[in-house]
Amino acid sequence: MSRRIRVTRRAILSTLTVVVALAATVVVYGITPHGDDINAPFNERGALGDVLTGRTLTGSVTSVRLASSFDATEVGEEWTGPTTGTWVVVEAEFAATVEPSSLYRPTLTIGDATYYATERLSLLTLDNSLMRPGIASRGLILFEVADSALASEAAGRAEVGINASYESILDSRLAFDVDLRGLPVESDVVVSRPVDVVL
């Protein structure tokens, strides 16, 4: 009493078409960016001392220190940087590649937390300098960071990010891997204005 099912060529083709379309959808979803990745910047990655070049900027992060206070009296600034956390002092040297540019909101990423460069000492830090082609500026970028972040394991894989543009959407970004663990916390770290270095 078995009932015989008639399978037509048309039915087979329709089924195959649906299967292929579904498979293609899965493949396309898998190989294309989604979520935040759609507008993510293109990272040029390096370590301390590496010279990285992006679309608008070229340069390096030369040292990283921790500080509890600053001494900016050399440039007539009484501010000492009082904080409930700790300062991460990044010494860096950058120049523009082709036309004048800036360090747009440098970031320090520790684990899931991203810190932007402080604006509390706006006239003296490197991120307030205009970058020029062939004439690098050497100076400091300051991040005010929670002590808990520096004590975390992620502090060993921190990242200093330099964006090529303010929004940093689908644009190049320089990413320097830095290890913040075990660094001594210094007091009265001297802050001076960025200096020009002709490349």
């Binding site: 082709v98 004048p100 020029r132 082609p133």
Partner: peptide, 21 residues
């Protein structure tokens, strides 16, 4: 206002802001 320039090492036309620095 900007000044642009080329050299053998930098044939790309680099630019500098004028009347600053």
């Amino acid at each position: 206002l900007q000044v642009s320039a080329t050299s053998p090492e930098h044939p790309e036309r680099r630019r500098w802001n004028a009347n600053v620095d």
